[in-house]
Design a protein around this nucleic acid. Sequence first.
DNA 1: TAACGATTGCAACGCAGTTGCATTTGATGT
DNA 2: ACATCAAATGCAACTGCGTTGCAATCGTTA
Lengths: 149, 149
Amino acid sequence: MSLPPQLVELAQLARARGARATPARLQVLSALRDASRALSHHDIEAALSAQPLDRVTLYRVLDWAVAAGLVLRTTDENRIYRYSLGARHEAHAAHAHFNCDDCGRVFCLDDVAPAPAMPAGFLAKRVDVAVHGRCAACGGCATHDEPLP
Amino acid sequence: MSLPPQLVELAQLARARGARATPARLQVLSALRDASRALSHHDIEAALSAQPLDRVTLYRVLDWAVAAGLVLRTTDENRIYRYSLGARHEAHAAHAHFNCDDCGRVFCLDDVAPAPAMPAGFLAKRVDVAVHGRCAACGGCATHDEPLP
DNA sequence: TAACGATTGCAACGCAGTTGCATTTGATGT
DNA sequence: ACATCAAATGCAACTGCGTTGCAATCGTTA
């Protein structure tokens, strides 16, 4: 069983996490990698329509990928999960994300924003910073494209 | 049909917005006012179990209250709406919220955090800062939880 | 108080995500 | 190459939040 070249890398990713490199996983990861935006469950189903995947299997593959740290899951404004390939962000005391309004992708920002001042008596445990705008790939400010993280 | 004193104020609120001061609305607003935390649909149903309200009516009352700016609706980590009595916050270029992990209430922070540094080519349009922790009413500073580093 | 339109209750629906279980299959040891 | 077995899949049915359509009811205003 020789794998298409664009999938061997993904297969290694899966196996490196102690999981099987199944067609379902490779197809889903591949679809996410090729996507120009963060995909919903429906989007992925549509992208894989050539080789249909069971709804439940897709959910389980996505759960696995998120747990394995291969995929980032976000909740959009309509309370729908959207998935994008990307590194896991460990639980930080503070972390910052960039959400592209155009393609929906999520980027982890290296820079950690300082916590705003708290009113008296308030205890801040974690600060989530979500920056919304346009990423470089979508022409944020008409400069050079940056490679994806 | 005289109104209990604790409801007349709410009735005026409703009528001031061109809406009828119906029992359903007064009960829901009253429950939210008395709550020590942000309530989900279920929480409110439970709080009104003495005088049951149709599920749909509750959804519609809440939709109305949110649209009228009487109630703040947030989505919790499980993609469930939670409602709390409070003023509507208009769209800012940047705004900061404090979410209490204990009571679930949401507070608007006056202080606006500066945007973190953007990678080249990224355009930041809006920065949402969500601080999670414990509010003063829940004893934020009286605990031994680790503060931010 | 009568009338009208806003509001409610009911029933049925839609959709995202989950669970249980029998079957299949990728990786491993021989 | 082949047998093995836990991991992964597919199917079916289910849960739970939220919505829609419509007829009946009720708050407000004249």
